[in-house]
Amino acid sequence: MSRIQTTFEQLKTQKRKGLITFVMGGDPDFETSVEILNALPKAGADLIEIGMPFSDPVADGETIQKAGIRALKNGMTLKKILKMVKIFREDNQETPLILMGYSNPIHAYGEALFFQDAGQVGVDGVLIVDTPPEEGQDLIQCAHTNEIDLIRLATPTTDRQRMGKITQGASGFLYYVSIAGVTGTASADINHVRTHIEMLKTQTDLPIAIGFGIKTPEDAKEMSALSDAIIVGSALVQTIETTPRDKVVEILTVQIRALSRALG
């Protein structure tokens, strides 16, 4: 069983909702970013998403855009992201790691080679924001050969028919984008999310994680009632942006503990 599957099974047994934390790989620099990664599971992250920085992140709001720019300025590359994963895996064999980013850096690395290298260092899932199922057919094979889950997005604009297309070749979990918009902006309307998730559940057996616009423990609690896990990104990235480096792990830990507690 994959790490992602195992984690969701455990959450189910423990009757708990999962906390997925997103941080940008290499933000603010390689060393600090590794420290942050190592601290996330202890703080209460059940799964971790690592952003792969890109110069033109069209699905991201200002907070995550700026994080990507900081990382790139400090020399972050896809190779270094994989190196980071390798370091993380030296001490942690349980927490699932999902890489999230855009098509072009992966295209430049070489899609097949990327999935091969990612599989080797212990990446569990890959989410490519700007590759919809229509363009992702070759990736399904690449991912599965290397025992990596291809995480797909469903959004408020996804209808029943479209869901069939999205879940084809998807595995791990389904990432539900709770608002039509970019990361870190508005909060979702809970009733809309509820209705929509109910529809999605009739179309897939994959666990569902809700992300975009979840900032506080209250948001986390509310959204977790509708899903198997919730994803917090911009709120954590904001903390990394505004906290001095020597304090960042400590403050982030407090923030994540509060989110984790809210999930019960």
Binding site: S103, D130, E134, L153, T155, G181
Partner: peptide, 20 residues
Amino acid sequence: ENGHFGAYGGRYVAETLMPL
């Protein structure tokens, strides 16, 4: 039918935009 001119073109957009 998916908008490819040989290896180029296509629809590389976030899922939110796909239906549109």
